[in-house]
Design a binder for these strands. Sequence first.
DNA 1: ATATTTTATTATGCATGCATAGTAAAATAA
DNA 2: TTATTTTACTATGCATGCATAATAAAATAT
Lengths: 150, 150
Amino acid sequence: MKDITIDYALRATWQAVAKMYNEEAGKEDSTMATGFTLLSIDPEKGSPSTALGPKMGMEGTSLSRTLKSMEEKGLIIRKPNPKDGRGVLICLTDFGKEKRDYSKEVVLKFNETIRDHVTDSDLQGFYNVIDVINEFISEKKIYKENVSKK
Amino acid sequence: MKDITIDYALRATWQAVAKMYNEEAGKEDSTMATGFTLLSIDPEKGSPSTALGPKMGMEGTSLSRTLKSMEEKGLIIRKPNPKDGRGVLICLTDFGKEKRDYSKEVVLKFNETIRDHVTDSDLQGFYNVIDVINEFISEKKIYKENVSKK
DNA sequence: ATATTTTATTATGCATGCATAGTAAAATAA
DNA sequence: TTATTTTACTATGCATGCATAATAAAATAT
C-alpha cells in the first residue's frame, strides 16, 4: 500500500485503531481515554496525576478533563498529594479496578496480535520510520524555538 | 524505540504530525482539515463532495462541517451538482487556490523528507505493519457484523 | 524573609472525529 | 406510476486534542 502517503497512512490507521478502542470501551460504558487512564494508574498506591500524562502521551489539560468525568463515574477518587500541595493523587475505586482489567485485555490483545502477524524486520522498519518522523518534528520545533528567541 | 507499544507509537506520532500540520496551517489562518480539503479539490473543475471524503479519509459528516467553515472563509463555493440534485459541487475560489499552494507544499515536503531519511526496507516494513493493523481491524468488523446478523 | 518564577491543576473555547437523526432527491421495486 | 429503499447531505452532541488563561502552591532568587 505504498500508494498512500505516510501521513495519510498514519492518520487513517490511528483513526481506525481509535475507533476500535472506543467501540470496545463503549461496551463497558467507557471511552478510550478513560481506558488508557485506568491502565496508567497504579492500582495499589495510586498515582500522582503528573505521572499519568507523560505515561499516556496526554497533556495535563486533557487529562484533567478525563479525570473529572472518571471521578463523576466513580472510577477514581482524587486525594490530596501529601508531598505536594499543588498536586493530587489519583486512586482507583473498586469499580475502577474492575474496569481496568477489561481495558488491559483489549490493549494487550491488540498489540500482541499485531506483533504476532508481522516480521521482526517489518516491525523494526515501522519503529525506525516512527523515529524519523518524531525526530523531524522535534528538530523543526527546536529550530522554531531558536528563531523565536533571536 | 521498541519499548513503546504499537498503538502508543501510532497515536503519539500522528498527534505530533497533526500538531505540526495545524501549526503550519495556522500561519495562514487555516487548519489542518481545511488544508487537506483544499488539496483534494480539483482546482479546475471542482469536485463533487462525495469524491472528497474517501480521498481524504474523512467522513461525510466531518467534511460537511469543514466545508461550511471553508465557505464562510471564502475558500470555496458550493454549486449545485447538475448531475445529481442531492449533491453539491465544491469549487475553489481564487482565494482558495492561493491557499491551496501552501498546503500542498507543507504536505509534500513532510512526506518527501521522511522518505528521504528512511531506507526502502524500513519504509516497506512500516507499510506492512500498517496493512496488518488495518486488516486486523477490518476482520474484527466483519466478524462483528456477521455475529450481529445471526 | 520577601519577591519572582515555575509547576500543578482546572476551566474554556476551538478543531475534528464519530454517532445519530432528519431531509430531500435519486434509484429501485411492485 | 407509486411506494420503498438508498444516497447525499446537514445539524447536533459527545469525546478528545491543543491553546490560552487563571489560581494556588512550591521552588528559586535576592
